[in-house]
Amino acid sequence: MQDEALLRIVDRVYDSILSPEDHGLVLDEVMRVTNSHFMVLSAHRPNSPIQPLFAGDMTSRRLDGLAEYAAGAFATDPTAHFANKCPQGGLFATDHQIDRDQHAAHPHVKWNRHYLGNSHWTARFDVRDGMMFGVSVHSRSPDEPHAEDDRARFEMLFGHMARAWRVAGRKADLGSHRGAVMLLNGAGWVKGMSPAGQAMVESGQGFRVLQGELLPQDSRCRTPWREAVWRVSLPTGPDEEAMLIPHGDDRRPLAVTISAVSQTHAFGARARDILVRVVDRDAAAADMSRQLGNLWNLTPAEARLAQTLLDEDFALRRTAERLGIAYSTVRTQLASIFAKTETTSQPELTRLLARLSG
């Protein structure tokens, strides 16, 4: 293939950063010049479940195979094992990593041959900021691996795809945001922070950044925190979760929302970016009662209740005692608040009020 034609594809790789609708066309070009008929792309945390993106001719058999892959066939995928074991290993190729005698008997090779129509594939990996970007191309030949020149073209093009992926995921500018917010990638690494978020982290109030990852100061919260971030990062995960994170002193816990935001990553980066909003309820002394009443036509009593519920961590009996009203009155007014704010649960209403108070 002439160098000029290959350079035109490289140009399209970078042009597609600003035109995600062209990604499919670029992937088709990469498959064409590497003599491939199928491609698998993913961006995920090492040693976490892969959420792959597939490109190529999707026959009914392949669709059946991809459904089976998602249901558990990935567990035998030698590429995934290699990537997790050797994230900086760079190149995986079946004719390099799998012994000839083992190749014919390998369960995933058999699966690949049956559903995808070939027994050889080549993959590359790039790890940055806790996320692994990987691309696997599958040879057109049913039985032969990619030729050396096809593999060389793929390695060159992958380098540009990985660089475009990193550019698309560059750090965000949150300098104009007034609240304490942090933007994370799917691995929980910080991509940007508002000035208030930066000040909160630097002062050790609830959070710290450890080797690029945003983590609660309280180590007991780190496992549930990472699990929540991981769930929200998945394309099939919840759009938002909420947590209470210890402040680090005798003050009340910080109210934290973990929300998925639209992604601009190029080429199969399926993990969503995450916006973290932190509300220091002791610092947010402003009374929201008037604001709540205006937004949802709450009565003064309902607005006071909503404000107090947030202040008291939604402890209904403690809220009743603080307001000097009956517990049954709290429940009746809360039902009215749910109806007017179009929320259906205490966690949902908490997230709504926490966002407003920030």
Rank of each mutant, 00 (worst) to 15 (best):
A283H: 12
P142G: 04
I9N: 03
D101T: 06
K110Q: 15
P142R: 06
Q263P: 12
V190K: 04
V256W: 07
G188T: 13
D250S: 15
G186Y: 11
Q217T: 15
R12K: 14
R166F: 09
N35E: 05
D64A: 12
G179L: 03
A286R: 15
Q2E: 06
Q102M: 12
D313M: 10
I258R: 09
Q198H: 12
R317Y: 12
G117W: 08
E241F: 03
H81R: 13
E68F: 06
G197L: 05
T34M: 07
M39Q: 13
D311T: 05
V13E: 01
T344S: 15
M132F: 01
D313S: 11
S219Y: 00
Q205T: 12
T264D: 06
H81C: 08
H106F: 10
V201G: 08
T299L: 08
P235E: 09
V109Y: 08
E68L: 14
K171T: 10
D280W: 00
A285L: 05
M156S: 02
H114E: 09
A260N: 10
V127R: 06
A187R: 04
E4S: 11
P46C: 04
R178H: 10
S259V: 15
L41R: 13
M58N: 05
Q88A: 00
S141C: 07
A71E: 14
F92S: 08
V181P: 02
T94R: 10
S194I: 00
R170I: 03
A283S: 13
A105S: 15
R32H: 09
V40A: 14
D129M: 11
A284Y: 08
Q102P: 00
Q88G: 14
Y327M: 10
W111T: 05
S119P: 03
I274D: 08
G130H: 02
E227Q: 14
R231P: 02
A187G: 14
Q346G: 13
E312R: 14
